[in-house]
Structure formats: C-alpha cells, structure tokens
Design a binder for these strands. Structure first.
Lengths: 142, 142
DNA sequence: AATAAAAATGTTTTAGAATTGCAATATTAT
DNA sequence: ATAATATTGCAATTCTAAAACATTTTTATT
C-alpha cells in the first residue's frame, strides 16, 4: 500500500490536511531505506528540489503525525539527534551499531522476539514497541 | 565492595582527586536503586543536604568519570534527558517502560542474552554494551 | 608550616536540537 | 466567491549539555 495513501486516509480521519509539503516529506522518506534525522531529511529535500522552500519547522511538526499514522518510528539516536526510519514495507528489526565507523546494521531473530512476548505476557505488560540496540565493533573495525 | 573505595582507587590510578563533592555524588547515587538524570540527582542532594552548594556542572562532569570507573552506566533516556543507573551490585538487566505511569521495570532473560551473543558471533561483531527497552502498558495501566 | 603547581569547583556563557508564537498563506466547505 | 480553519515559514524561545574562566581547594615540595 502506498504510504501517501495511508497518510491521506489518516488526514481525513483526523481533520487534518494532506498538503504538498507533507507529500514531499513522505516521498523523500520512502525513497530510500536509510535512517535519518530531521536535518538530513531537510537537506535531502533541498537538494532534490532546489526550488521548494520547505522549512525545518514543518518537518519537525510532521514527524509526530507520521508516527501516529503508523508510517514512521523513532529509531536509534545518533549524536544527540533523534533518528527516524519508515515502517511501511520495512520489516521489523533491531540494530547493531559500530562505535568506530558509526555504521548501523540491522538484525532480527525469532528467538528474541518470542522471548520478549513470553516475558511480557508473564508480567502482564502490554507491548506497544521496543528498542534494542547492540553497541560494539563491526567486523571491519574490531 | 564499597563504591567509594572503588572510586578512590580509580582516582589514584588516574591522577585525579577524590573530593567531598564526588563523595557526596556517589553516596546519593548508591543510596537507592533508582534510575536518575542529572537534574534529579542535583535536587535529591539539595534536599538531603540543604547546606551544601554543589553545582549541576560538577555532576555533569562527574558522570563520565563514574562511568569510566565502572560504577555507573547510561540507562534508558527519558524525555530527552540522559538517565543513569549504578552498576555495582546491580546485576545486568534491561527495561520495561510503562507509557502511562512512566514506571520502569527491570527484566533479564538468559535466552535473550545468549541469543544476542550467538548473533554477534555469527556476524563477527564485538559487543561492548547494549540497550533493550520494551515500551507499553504495565499491568496497572493497561 | 609556607609556597608553588595542579586539579576541581561554581558561575556564567555558549551550543545545539527541538518547540512555540505569530502573521501570512493555503486549503476546505459553504 | 467568501468565510472558516489548518498549515506554513520565520523568528524567537526553551531546554539540556557542555565549555570558559576566574576562584578555590588539594597535593607535593621544600
């Protein structure tokens, strides 16, 4: 399903407007599978569409909307900036982060996932999301 | 082993001074098992010892020292503030965080720990630390 | 004990990301 | 077309964390 359609739907349901700026933001977010922060996204859009004058403020204001719409989630924070990654068609995963080169690798294991669920069930804790990051050195840097 | 002794040792080894302020900070950190951020710690010390005039700056400067000394680690970030928890006598664990009441629960499972190690071995990734937080609603709030 | 050298402290600034206020603009509904 | 309302961009503000710097405290040496 197209993320922009999802957001159009979401806008209708919440008395919000699907604007060109928001469309632009979603476009750029879904153009790649990379993690990004607000400033990087801003610069990427600038570069691709030198004519537009989309402001950082709009991006800041749009992020929580996209999160609520289920299109985006906060990912692992780098250098004190909040990082995001899109969720549609991007299967669930967690991260390995190299402390030397800064590179981020994704991982997923059934075992951990199942164990998480079992654990929460036992504790009567209703999971909505989670964050799991392993820090260390990648095969190149260690 | 007493955390203050550990830090005294650490100071000796690194040409640093064990000052009353640092002692005060360690005392307060080890008085409870709670997670805390710099401001909370500052206020706690203020309250307990109204006479002292320890500054936030000193606490900010002391945190990395305690981390290097192995007494403290960064824990889960709340509301954009860095949170810490002491490590001595506080066995390794991860966190469940309730999105409603804000309460933090600790958990540990052998299975997840082992799986992490296996996964990193396979990928030739050398682990130094990790962060694993599950968000959701606790048994009281859901 | 007195003094010099070094480290740590508190106060005040600064840096930077994120948020907000507000006037201007764009969109929607009538 | 017009009124009502949401969204935008800019500028100003907030807030945490980190310096700068002069002062105080501690240590080492005599």
């Amino acid at each position: 399903m197209d993320p922009k359609d999802v957001f159009r739907q979401f806008c209708k349901q919440n008395d919000m407007r699907y604007t060109p700026e928001r469309g632009l933001i979603i476009d750029e977010i879904y153009r790649t599978h990379d993690h990004f922060d607000v400033d990087q996204l801003f610069l990427r859009i600038r570069k691709r569409f030198p004519g537009t004058k989309l402001s950082r403020a709009s991006i800041y204001r749009t992020m929580p909307l996209l999160i609520n719409a289920g299109l985006l989630r906060e990912s692992l924070t780098q250098d004190s900036r909040i990082c995001y990654e899109h969720t549609l068609g991007h299967s669930h995963h967690d991260h390995l982060k190299c402390l030397k080169c800064g590179k981020i690798f994704e991982f997923f294991t059934e075992v951990i996932d199942k164990e998480q669920e079992a654990l929460c069930k036992k504790r009567k804790f209703k999971i909505t999301s989670h964050m799991h990051v392993i820090y260390g050195y990648c095969y190149k840097c260690k």
